[in-house]
Design a protein around this nucleic acid. Structure first.
Lengths: 339, 339
DNA sequence: GTTCATGTTGACAGCGCTGTCATTACTGGA
DNA sequence: TCCAGTAATGACAGCGCTGTCAACATGAAC
């Protein structure tokens, strides 16, 4: 049988309430009492009954990670970070996927979200893209008065958020290509709905312009983050007039970069000797393709960690309205100096 | 404010207990009472307080998905399946990763698992490989009297399980290659610790033997499921004497199969014209490599679904001791008829 | 009409914890 | 010396639900 607070109290010769104070690190407990209670709780392997505590405090000690069809890789890192933050605070993480994309009307979306949230007793939720900017979700959360943290949101808002500086990352990656002597650097854009798409594009443009280069229209291709769209973009970029053919292609995610490598191979171009390629995200794919992709590592784990930390923090702790986390440029084998 | 059971009871002019009976589908409630209570509960958007219910029933309405360093893709499908089954039953899924690989002694593992499980109030857990066969985990669960379902376990045991028939899948895939006219079919084994490794190997051997073919030692290579090991295996298999060079390679997972395609490309071999390749698992990678991989789709979603279903089933429902789920052979572009 | 089985309902306690408030012990200052 | 202020502790109610058990209604069997 699991030990209860009463067991500990009896054994320590104090009241339940005192034990409760110790367990919750409340003040006004004599040091030796505190120590004794702690020792006995340990000995009995006591751990509080979450349901009872929740009933008394009207909290659930649960937070939710909500997502809608993200890449498994992304979600698994966020998840890992969030769980670690939860554990430190005695919380647990429940996962809650949505498929809001199938629904047309906002009204229907709201009803769907509400139906789920009505029976999901959580103290806070982490919203991952594209949910971070989903109006229906945001509205229901506000209506039900549930705290949330938005991961990599597109638009501003009253809620706290965590993110990274896509523009600067893209700028730096472009600079790296420039430093290797490349001038004809092409860029493949991602899905237009995605917050990161325009930021990454902007970073590339800024670096090119600062280098005094004119970005011809032929150097920009539109993709949608999928492998197939990357392949199409690559064919377009590499199939033009000789003078326009890029010596480097910066794809705005790894899937598209992998597609570029694949297409280049089919066209008889050597990567990186004839064509340098780089990606964005540092997915597992980046290390599996050949040559291994130079790419930007997003602080995904840390985003999850910080987001959860903000939600489970005790009210006396400092809160942070928004956090921009550091990225890292992973130099691998798909970029070479231009000869 | 959220509605409580008392609100519903007052409004319906019945006692709390009757409302409770209706909500839990208990018998012995007059049909019209039942209907009225249901209608009012709906109207009030009432949903029970999990903590209170949990306190009264000493259940938590939570089940855990435990994993140790699996592929994100695998876990995300299992997770999705499990969540869907939970929702149907009013349960929620909490995720709990472990890193038991770093620990050496069994004792230490047991303590680690116990520390986590002591404060994880769940009604049951889903164990994914390699945890499905982890002695420490199994022991702690038994000690704490927590139900579990093992996903794709290696060894037998008293607990229910879900899995698939790796041997038959491998057998059928090999037959497919045979049907395409291949005779020199090589096989790349996976990590020796993994339950599936020997099963997949056995299926291959059975098909080869039934076809009356002698499997030369040169046709078998050892890998460990990683891309790198697959590349090494491919180099070994393709670099031998001419008469031993396979016309088809069956890699026992997709990562290794992707490596084979990559190596073949580097060696100037056309896939599938000169070399057919197939994999196992149907990861996203399989559709992203070129040519797209012929592979075996595991019923991962369904495994998660069934596992959770077994854990959340009401005690009056039928239980299943073990379930072998159907796989599917995905015919794509990496296998061709031998000319 | 009485008896019994069965169906329907409600009163009430109590799950394990924490919030509130009262009580006691102890300190330093007037 | 006495009192106020503060630290340390405990008694008790109650969070929202369900399990138990008792009460009552109904109808069949005798």
């Amino acid at each position: 049988m699991k030990a209860t607070i009463t067991d500990v109290a009896k054994r320590a010769g104090v009241s339940m309430k005192t034990v409760s104070r110790v367990l919750n690190n409340e003040p006004n407990v004599a040091e030796n009492t505190r120590a004794r209670v702690k020792a006995i709780a340990d000995e009995l392997r006591y751990s509080p009954n979450l349901a009872a505590r929740g009933l008394a405090t009207s909290k659930s000690y649960l937070i939710a990670l909500m997502y809608d069809n993200p890449s498994p890789n992304y979600i698994s890192h966020i998840q890992r970070g969030a769980i670690d933050a939860c554990r430190e605070a005695g919380y647990h993480l429940v996962v809650q996927p949505f498929s809001l994309g199938d629904l047309v009307s906002t009204d229907e979306k709201i009803r769907t979200v509400r139906r789920v949230m009505d029976r999901l007793p959580v103290d806070g939720v982490i919203l991952t893209p594209p949910l971070s900017d989903n109006a229906a979700v945001l509205e229901v959360l506000e209506e039900l008065n549930i705290k949330c943290v938005r991961v990599a949101p597109k638009n501003g808002g009253a809620q706290p958020f965590v993110g990274m500086d896509d523009e600067t990352a893209s700028y730096q990656m472009t600079q790296h290509l420039l430093n290797q002597g490349h001038k004809k650097i092409a860029f493949i854009r991602g899905h237009a709905d995605h917050a990161a798409t325009s930021l990454r594009h902007a970073g590339y443009m800024r670096a090119m312009q600062e280098a005094g280069l004119v970005v011809s229209e032929n150097l920009i291709a539109q993709g949608d983050f999928s492998f197939e769209s990357g392949a199409a973009a690559a064919r377009k970029l590499l199939g033009g007039q000789t003078e326009d053919i890029p010596t480097a292609i910066f794809a705005s995610n790894d899937d598209m970069a992998a597609a570029v490598i694949s297409v280049a191979g089919q066209m008889g171009l050597n990567v990186p000797e004839t064509l340098s390629v780089c990606g964005f995200d540092d997915t597992p794919l980046a290390r599996v393709v050949w040559p291994a992709l130079t790419t930007v590592r997003q602080p995904i784990y840390k985003m999850g960690h910080q987001a959860a930390k903000e939600l489970v923090r005790r009210s006396d702790e400092q809160s942070e309205k928004g956090q921009i986390l550091d990225f890292e440029i992973m130099l691998r084998d798909s970029v070479a100096k231009l000869k």
